[in-house]
Computed example of a mutant assay.
Amino acid sequence: MQQTHEEKRNDRLLKSGDLFFDDLIEGDYFVTEGIVVTESHVVGFAGLSGDRFSIHLDDVTAQQAGFPGRIAHGLLVLGLVDGLMMNSAVKPRIVAALGWDWSFKAPVLINDRVHAEARFKPIRRTKRGDRGIVELVITVFKNQRDVVHSGVKTLMLECRSSA
């Protein structure tokens, strides 16, 4: 009997608590809570970042560009999702973030609710042996079903034991 793609990968939903590099199996995942992107988020981010591009702040300009209304900054949504992951019940023992590789796939509008699914891919232990490098493969959804962002966050995690 041929296995399906889903049967070949691990689909272990992680439980709450601390998570070390040694605890991970490729495909382990968690799902974040959600957050509604508000006008205050967008306006505040525009002020903080200096990104006052009119599709974020003016409905008419956004509509003329083909959007139904103002859209949230991609980096704002990325920041909100990173905050959701850091406040998750799953607590990876992060030493450092090493990088991002990210794609903005669809617009997020004011009042859209976003959440993420994050899957771990252990890469290797560091030379010291007390830390490990993982890729966190992230898919961001709006309104429960539409993929709006995706990418990889590379992290260094503590190891439970030295190799």
Rank of each mutant, 00 (worst) to 15 (best):
T126L: 12
E26M: 01
P68A: 05
T4N: 07
Q144C: 06
W102K: 01
S162Y: 05
S161D: 10
V114F: 04
V114Y: 14
R128C: 10
R125M: 09
L155S: 01
R131A: 08
K127S: 11
V152I: 14
D101C: 09
F67K: 08
I138Q: 11
R93W: 14
D18F: 13
K153I: 03
V137T: 00
R93C: 14
G79N: 00
I55E: 09
A89P: 10
L48S: 04
H56N: 07
K153P: 03
V60G: 06
V108F: 12
D130N: 12
D112T: 13
M86N: 10
D51G: 03
D11L: 05
L78E: 08
D130V: 12
D51C: 10
G44R: 08
G129Y: 04
L98P: 07
I133N: 02
T38D: 11
I94M: 04
I35S: 10
R70H: 06
V152A: 01
D130E: 12
T4D: 00
G47M: 09
E7R: 09
Q2M: 06
R128F: 08
K15Q: 13
V37Q: 06
F104Y: 15
T126G: 04
V43L: 14
L136W: 01
E39W: 03
L48E: 06
S88N: 08
A163R: 12
A97W: 15
L157E: 06
Q3R: 15
G151F: 01
E26I: 03
K8D: 09
I55K: 01
N10D: 13
M1W: 12
G74L: 09
H41V: 03
F45I: 08
